[in-house]
């Protein structure tokens, strides 16, 4: 297996976006790309990352391999790469290590690191293609700010989607808060658009703690998609055009 990115910055951001939620995980490498699927320790949230082979500078995977890696260790290794350095990952069949090589574009500096692989028993969940009741596309910075703001007031947020707006509400010991975002078009700046596709109105409650973990992916993507159906986990997708995506799933809280 050998994969090369032109710039380390995307991979750094991917690892930063998921490492605090899942810790150790397995990267599944096939000839179509690298992916991981992992739940957090409480089995409430799930991360699914796909990095498509087309998004790499060069990519080769002769035999499918699953590489168990501590994401904190991977983050440490990637700290040694400059944002504009190229990154090459190499793994040979049956080897218990993965190699990282970072090269500056003027080629005057090359650094190499070897990371020990881990045996990880991953429990994969089958996630069926779902027709969601409501899909909201919005700037990822708006979601990050909304979740951070409301976290000051409560632990949970109720997200309610109607035809032309989406409302985030919370309450806690010191008071209550809500943020309403209305659909708005923008032909010249599509990344600032708020688009709501509603088949059925939805209202779901989620733990803000996890949403705040998810919005660590905001530096990867200007836009985010919230896909919701009543009594179903939320899917939060950060698309990375031509590269792949990060999707997070979060189980709702239900009233007893």
């Amino acid at each position: 297996f050998e994969a090369k990115w032109d710039h380390a910055s995307t991979l750094k951001k991917v690892i930063d976006a998921v490492k605090d939620l899942i810790g150790d995980t397995s990267w599944d490498c096939t000839n179509t790309g690298m992916s991981l699927q992992s739940m957090d320790s409480s089995h409430v949230a799930l991360v699914h990352v796909l990095l498509k082979s087309e998004g790499f500078e060069s990519y080769r995977c002769d035999r499918n391999v699953s590489m168990g890696i501590s994401l904190n260790s991977m983050a440490k290794v990637l700290k040694c790469a400059g944002n504009d350095d190229s990154v090459t990952l190499r793994h040979e069949s049956e080897s218990s290590v993965v190699n990282f090589a970072f090269e500056s574009h003027k080629e005057e500096r090359v650094s190499e690191f070897e990371l020990k692989l881990m045996n990880i028993d991953t429990e994969h969940l089958g996630i069926p293609e779902t027709e969601y009741d409501s899909i909201i596309k919005m700037p990822s910075a708006d979601l990050r700010r909304t979740c951070a703001d409301l976290s000051q007031f409560g632990d949970s947020v109720t997200i309610s989607c109607a035809k032309s707006d989406v409302r985030f509400e919370t309450s806690g010991d010191i008071g209550t808060g809500n943020v309403r975002l209305s659909a708005r078009g923008s032909s010249d700046k599509p990344e600032t658009e708020i688009a709501i596709e509603m088949i059925n109105p939805v209202s779901l409650t989620f733990a803000l703690k996890y949403l705040n973990f998810f919005t660590k992916a905001a530096p990867l993507s200007d836009t985010v998609k919230l896909c919701m159906s009543n009594n179903h986990p939320l899917c939060v997708e950060f698309p990375m055009p031509e590269v792949g995506y990060i999707r997070y799933y979060l189980a709702p809280k239900i009233d007893e």
């Binding site: 409480s42 799930l46 969940l125 089958g126 189980a251």
Partner: peptide, 14 residues
């Protein structure tokens, strides 16, 4: 009273 559900209640373990 809100209860946090787990993902296995919605998705099947493979």
């Amino acid at each position: 009273q809100e209860t946090q559900t787990r993902l296995e209640s919605y998705f099947t373990v493979q």
